[in-house]
Design a protein around this nucleic acid. Structure first.
Lengths: 109, 109
DNA sequence: CTGTTAATTAACGCAAATGTTAATTACATG
DNA sequence: CATGTAATTAACATTTGCGTTAATTAACAG
């Protein structure tokens, strides 16, 4: 089981976070398709994907000469579990949490 | 509102994560009380607290010559909201895993 | 076999993060 | 007011992270 700080480190970079969001929103994609996620070169993307892979955030599937990436469920589960484990701490504002979720959905359309 | 990658960056360091866990478990504590959280000097702790403060993860309260720190609810809320917003993804992870395996079998024929 | 495409690895430069010791600020107390 | 305690800021060294270009590996197409 990956430790949370390592998971957070993987998601702390804006480019990597964008990759994860994209994969979550649109499903699995090849390294090439992810190229336009940020204004950086292909090797840079490749290294970000490696970091995500080593943190267990994404899995790699080989299809011909393409490497196809998808988000792994476990890390998201782990993060959710951690936040919810401390729910008694921030439970005072469930309304705001709900609002935040609604907001996210709205933005992603 | 703080962006998630910045939040994750604040929590990516093991010492900072330990500070947050401690404050969540035992409630607010002074910088001095947090000194034993890791085998580093007081200035190092102080800088970690500054990072957490600037990311909005903790608040600082002044009491005499002590600075007392406590976790802010909003960041945990935000993280939880993000994870839960993608719950449909990792909730049925077993089904998806199965489907992915079936899919791969189909393709390789 | 040859050339093209997809992606990664190698080698390198630079900026940011993290630790140290020393100096500073602010409050408390005899 | 002089001294001690709590914490931070300053200055500096070292490591890590992230980007680049060039080289490499692997699969595909003629």
């Amino acid at each position: 089981m990956t430790r949370l700080p390592d998971l957070f480190a993987a998601l702390a970079d804006p480019t990597r976070f964008a990759i994860v969001e994209r994969l979550l929103a649109e499903g699995e994609q090849s390294a090439g398709e992810l190229a336009d996620i940020a204004d950086i070169t292909a090797p840079a993307i490749s290294r970000h994907l490696k970091v995500l892979r080593e943190a267990g955030v994404v899995t790699q599937r080989i299809d011909g000469q393409r490497r196809i990436y998808a988000v792994t469920p476990e890390p998201l589960q782990a993060i959710s579990a951690w936040a919810i484990a401390h729910r008694d701490f921030w439970e005072g504002s469930l309304d705001r949490l709900e609002a935040a979720i609604r907001n996210r959905r709205k933005e992603s359309r």
